[in-house]
Design a binder for these strands. Structure first.
Lengths: 168, 168
DNA sequence: GCAAATTAATGATTTATTCAAG
DNA sequence: CTTGAATAAATCATTAATTTGC
């Protein structure tokens, strides 16, 4: 990879030859989390946080802002991706484990895989949480959208205790 | 269903029996588009609009606000759902048409269905547009996120001419 | 040792699926 | 049953690792 001074990185390295350098001020590239930011995020994730609501995102963003520029959407996406890719990894692992340890005929094996897959996927289907688009993405025009939810919903507050995470 | 005056609708109708009435100020129920609002939205949709950006959503929301309370997210979701369900309907129709008109043996038919399905799905894969999460969902903390895109992208401006819609 | 080429990770979007109000 | 709302899965696109030829 072409290593350039931080401030000189632009979209395509090849264009550097005959192109003026972009200053970082004009937010050009995608968010690139610092090690410190990742550390905090993973800590929260391990603590059980999966789908932070707008308040939580705001708080986290503020906290992580100490280590570099960051927006709420970065935090939002980080959790989405992290969650999805953990699922992905687990699924692959389960399938691999099964096909390795199993010694049944092909048909049976396939069936077993399907079972296991379903069992896994079932674990991710849980009761919906009480959170709205307005809370998370906060349209500029609407500022008064606050959780009107009362009972029989799980209010994931921040910070979240480990034992409050999904039961699986 | 228990019909209540508009201002009295809360999340769970069953709670009304022993619950104080929520004033509409504290947005309680989901958005219910008025005929006028739907008319405008469908007009835009027929005009080719599929994935409006934040500016477009803002404009539309403002326009539709004349006919009743509405938020940006409602517009956002409306387009998402309308698009998805049109796809769904077309897919079902394609499959049905094929299985009705075709008189080939099962294997061939299945294959043909798969072909048709793929052909359809291919039509929905087009070059990405230039729009970001920040544009659409507008995090409160970031107000300066504006299209930094320059060339070789299709800028869907508002309003969109019919011929600028997806070619299908 | 070094960049260009290639691959692996992962941030950002879009699409599919699901839940649940009415 | 229709459809607003929300989440999960699939996909795209850019950045970092890494491999490779010199």
């Amino acid at each position: 990879m072409v290593v350039l001074p931080e401030f000189a990185r632009v979209r395509n390295a090849s264009r550097l030859l005959n192109c003026t350098v972009q200053v970082p001020t004009a937010g050009t590239t995608r968010w690139n989390p610092s090690p410190d930011q990742i550390k905090v995020l993973e800590m929260l994730y391990r603590g059980g946080m999966r789908t932070p609501n707008s308040f939580q995102i705001e708080q986290i963003t503020e906290e992580l802002g100490k280590y570099g520029r960051i927006e709420g959407k970065n935090v939002f996406y980080w959790f989405q991706n992290h969650k999805a890719r953990e699922r992905q990894k687990q699924k692959r692992a389960a399938l691999l484990t099964l096909s390795t340890t199993s010694s049944l005929p092909p048909a049976e094996t396939k069936d077993g895989v399907e079972k296991k897959k379903e069992a896994y996927e079932d674990a991710s289907r849980r009761k919906r949480r009480c959170r709205t688009w307005g809370d998370v993405h906060g349209d500029g025009a609407t500022t008064e959208v606050v959780a009107e939810c009362t009972d029989d919903v799980t209010l994931e507050l921040f910070p979240l205790r480990p034992d409050q995470g999904k039961a699986n």
